[in-house]
């Protein structure tokens, strides 16, 4: 009986590993293809697509595509722009949305439930439907900066950052997480004389590592993958992000090797960001059931 149980356990384990390996292969192979292809000349790359060679570093391997990619487009500038816009937006979004969620969960004020419902309802509104009205709005907005008073936010970092700071999903994530925090903690802090600001900064946020990681990663991906919005509000190369920059590589005869090299380069910040927050992200999924 014990032997049968051990066999079953072994079989289950083997099955589980087989399934996980298969899933891993499905997810990893496109990345392997991308990286391997980035080292191959175009003709070889295209010919290899019909065989297993597409996933192997074989044939005429070189870093020429990387050199050519940097020559074709200001890759470093595009990566900097995206990382800067994404980083600032993520930080401001975490701050603003967590404060909004704190207010919804812990403060008593009239209409908060209605307002929260409205904010959550915005999740079903596709961005494409508000893109043009938003474009018209930002093109007329005033701004006071180093250059003085100006009208219109086009061609700037702020136009890529500010409209994206507050969003329903991030607020919703924080609200759900805050609701699960022990109320006793908050009430004890109030009894001890802590202000709401102190409770937010000293009690709630230090406990919110998992949801911060989740919200940060989700926001990071949304911002880093921005295409439509920067396409319509940025006409100067100086402020162009990586996804719009990708279009530089699609010419009459597309240089596929350079495309793969560029994609490999712009994937690095995403991987790095995920690896940094990986542990907290997984903890968040495990504790809240939130899926990325």
């Amino acid at each position: 009986m014990a032997a049968i149980s051990a066999d079953n356990h072994g079989l289950r384990l083997a099955t589980r590993y087989a399934v996980l390996t298969l899933i891993a292969i499905i997810f990893i192979f496109p990345l392997v293809f991308m990286v391997m292809s980035s080292f191959k000349p175009d003709l070889q790359l295209l010919r290899d697509t019909s065989s297993i060679r597409a996933f192997l570093p074989v044939g005429d391997i070189s870093t020429d595509n990387y050199a050519a990619a940097f020559q074709r487009a200001p890759v470093g500038l595009f990566v900097f722009n995206s990382v800067f816009v994404t980083g600032v937006t993520v930080l401001l979004s975490l701050l603003l949305c967590s404060m909004a969620a704190f207010s919804f969960v812990f403060l008593n004020w009239t209409g908060r439930n209605v307002l929260l419902s409205i904010i959550i309802a915005t999740l079903i509104v596709p961005f494409e439907t508000i893109a043009i009205p938003l474009l018209l709005l930002v093109s007329k907005l005033p701004w006071i900066g180093l250059e003085g008073f100006t009208v219109g936010w086009l061609n700037s970092y702020r136009v890529q950052i500010i409209p994206w700071i507050a969003d329903g999903l991030t607020i919703f994530l924080f609200v759900q997480f805050f609701k699960d925090l022990p109320r006793d903690l908050i009430e004890a802090s109030r009894v001890e004389g802590a202000s709401w600001w102190q409770i937010y900064t000293k009690v709630v946020m230090p406990l919110s590592g998992p949801v911060i990681a989740t919200a940060a990663i989700l926001k990071f991906l949304v911002m880093y993958n921005q295409y439509l919005w920067p396409l319509i509000v940025v006409q100067e190369e100086t402020y162009r992000p990586v996804m719009v920059g990708l279009q530089y590589f699609f010419q009459l005869n597309t240089a596929w090797g350079e495309v793969m090299a560029y994609l490999t380069i712009i994937t690095v910040p995403v991987l790095a960001f995920y690896l940094v927050l990986q542990r907290a992200f997984i903890a968040s999924i495990a504790s809240t059931g939130v899926k990325g």
């Binding site: 018209l136 093109s139 219109g152 086009l154 319509i232 006409q235 100067e236 190369e237 699609f250």
Partner: peptide, 21 residues
């Protein structure tokens, strides 16, 4: 000169026309 990638050029122009830019 301000150069645009060809694939997104027309969309950029239409957006700029809407924004008066």
């Amino acid at each position: 000169l301000e150069a645009f990638p060809q694939g997104s050029y027309n969309d950029s122009v239409v957006a700029a026309a809407l924004a008066g830019n």
